[in-house]
Write a protein that binds this DNA or RNA. Structure first.
Ligand SMILES: [Zn+2]
Length: 546
DNA sequence: CGAATTTGACCGGCGC
DNA sequence: GCGCCGGTCAAATTCG
């Protein structure tokens, strides 16, 4: 048996998955002969390429109904998606143009067309903006939801604690685990009545102060400690039911596939120590877990960045719980779970890119169920935003897009857009990949070879249109950083700021670019600030990779 | 000595 | 049904 196991690990390690990639890349970019509209880039926006919604079409129609020979048809094509976009209709534009060509009128016509085009584009732009907005809203709702969940859990924990111990929250700094989880229930409460926006924000805000002050010893803030694990577990259970409902509402569309059994709780239960689960009626657990698990297809967000350290610093505390040889990669993949919260379900995988070992791929999964320090917040919110986006908006359609998309990516790649985000449906879970390999500090601009996306990544990638990229990304970056470091000046609470930042990110038409920018900044920031923990220390085992 | 990491065993899903 | 594989567990070991 051992041999078998070992065997396979070794096995894995050697094989390379190059074969994967050839497939769709070959796809003819322009079978139709025109611009290949990238179907997939739902993130992309304005450029007129967005094929998205019929809304636009409709509007256009009104404006120039008379000469749209082609338009009529267009309209039919597109009705696929409602505001969520994603299912883009590639050919629509093609068609229209083709038609025009055929009809070939005069200059007038031409002009007309141009006009029309302009109008269309404008409309498109507007639409896309709207679209983005909606998306943002969705993601925010998601976040809020999560925040609420967390709050509930926290509250419950607290209540239980109080009941049990009767002590003031300030006292429990203890924790049987010894992990230094400082939870600020207080703040939670305080913020509670405020707007529940992104929970993380709240956490962050307070945390910020806390973390900074804590050293000095601002007890006044009363950092309540994490309650004993058991309690938590129990409370979680309680929370479960509640969360269930909520979850459904929010993620309804996603969960629809599962029918009623979606198990939102997973987040809550996080990784329930097996023992616990066993202890509870195995049956229940079993059932629940199985159902839950099966559907789980959680969204994942992976970040590619250059780093020598075995881990990028994201402000969180992680504990390694496994390491394996991945199939197409000689480098081992490490599994970490978040230890900042007692039952925090967040996990991450860290692996070096096979071709370019300087690139470290970190994949995050899940949402934190506890307040985060500012540093961690940044990354967390960014990734969660990306994830929620993926889930809320596009997920379902993503698949389709993606597949068709690959060619697009292909074509786009050569240009080497500064930053890329990849969307992959191949895996059991939807995954967004943010590529920071080149962005960092702008030092590496030399262009060059697009090695960043090695062939091993057959999936689909979304290229960020350079165009939008700049303006927006910078904007979002700003906000992020701002909220991140500054925070002081504003009258608004930190939460607000962060919120704004996140919103900006999400809202950003060039979402991916924004994300990339944000993350990059985050990473960098953390790096400098918080060199203490994980990142540096991890270095030791790096040799293993070589 | 407790906490974190290491590492082989174990488990469940999936394709053949 | 079997083997592959990703992912996780947990005993053993190392670290601080
Ligand atoms: Zn966490």
């Amino acid at each position: 048996m051992e041999s078998a196991a070992r065997d396979h690990s070794i096995h894995n390690c050697r094989s390379i998955e190059q074969p994967l990639l050839s497939p769709e890349t070959a796809v003819d970019h322009d079978h139709h002969g025109k611009r290949i509209v990238d179907e997939l880039d739902f993130f992309a926006d304005n450029k007129g390429r967005l094929m998205e919604m019929r809304d636009q079409t409709v509007e256009v129609k009104e404006e120039g109904a008379h000469d749209h020979h082609g338009v009529g048809q267009e309209k039919q094509l597109p009705d696929v998606n409602t505001g969520l976009n994603l299912l883009t209709t590639y050919t629509s534009s093609d068609k229209s143009s083709m038609d025009d060509g055929t009809s070939s009128f005069h200059n007038m016509e031409d002009k007309h067309r141009t006009n029309e085009l302009a109008v269309l584009q404008a409309e498109l732009g507007r639409m896309s903006v709207e679209n983005q907005r909606l998306r943002v809203m969705i993601s925010q709702v998601n976040n809020n939801y999560q925040a609420l969940q967390v709050q509930i859990v926290t509250l419950m924990q607290r209540q239980q604690n109080q009941k049990a111990d009767h002590q003031t929250p300030e006292q429990h700094k203890m924790i049987n685990n010894g992990s230094v989880v400082v939870e600020e229930k207080q703040m939670m409460n305080g913020f509670n009545h405020i707007v529940p926006r992104q929970f993380m924000d709240m956490g962050r805000a307070e945390k910020d102060e806390l973390s900074q002050c804590s050293l000095e010893g601002c007890r006044s803030q009363d950092c309540s400690g994490s309650p004993p694990r058991n309690d938590i577990v129990e409370s979680m259970e309680c929370g479960k039911s509640t969360s269930h409902v909520l979850h459904r509402d929010l993620s309804g569309r996603i969960s629809t596939t599962n029918g009623g059994e979606d198990s939102p709780d997973q987040e809550f239960q996080g990784w329930v120590p097996k023992k616990v689960s066993k202890m509870m009626s195995p049956r229940d657990v079993d059932q629940a877990s199985s159902e839950t698990m099966s559907m789980i297809k959680k969204a994942r967000v992976s970040v590619r960045a250059r780093s020598e350290a075995s881990m990028i610093s994201d402000g969180c505390q992680w504990r390694k719980y496994g390491q394996k040889m991945a199939k197409g990669n000689p480098c081992p993949r490490a599994y970490y779970r978040c230890t900042m919260g007692t039952g925090c379900p967040v996990r991450k995988q860290v692996q070096r890119c096979a071709e370019d070992r300087t690139i470290l791929v970190t994949t995050y999964e899940g949402h934190h169920n506890h307040p985060l320090p500012p540093a961690a917040m940044a990354m967390a919110s960014t990734t969660s935003a990306a994830a929620s986006m993926l889930l809320s908006g596009s997920m379902p359609s993503a698949d389709g897009l993606i597949s068709s998309n690959s060619f697009l990516a292909r074509s786009a790649l050569p240009n080497c857009p500064p930053s890329l985000a990849t969307l992959s449906a191949s895996a059991p879970f939807p995954t967004v990949t943010l590529d920071l390999t080149r962005t960092p500090t702008s030092s590496e601009m030399p262009l060059g070879q697009p090695n960043q996306l090695p062939p091993s990544f057959p999936q689909n990638m979304m290229s960020v249109p350079q165009i939008l990229g700049q303006a927006l990304s910078s904007q979002s970056k700003f906000s992020v950083l701002d909220s991140f470091q500054g925070l002081d000046s504003a009258t608004h609470s930190l939460a607000d700021k962060v919120n704004a930042a996140t919103a900006a990110i999400t809202a950003d038409p060039n979402f991916t670019a924004a994300l990339v920018a944000a993350i990059t900044s985050i990473v960098g920031n953390v790096h400098s600030n918080n060199n203490t923990n994980n990142n540096v220390t991890t270095r030791n085992n790096s040799d293993s990779n070589t």
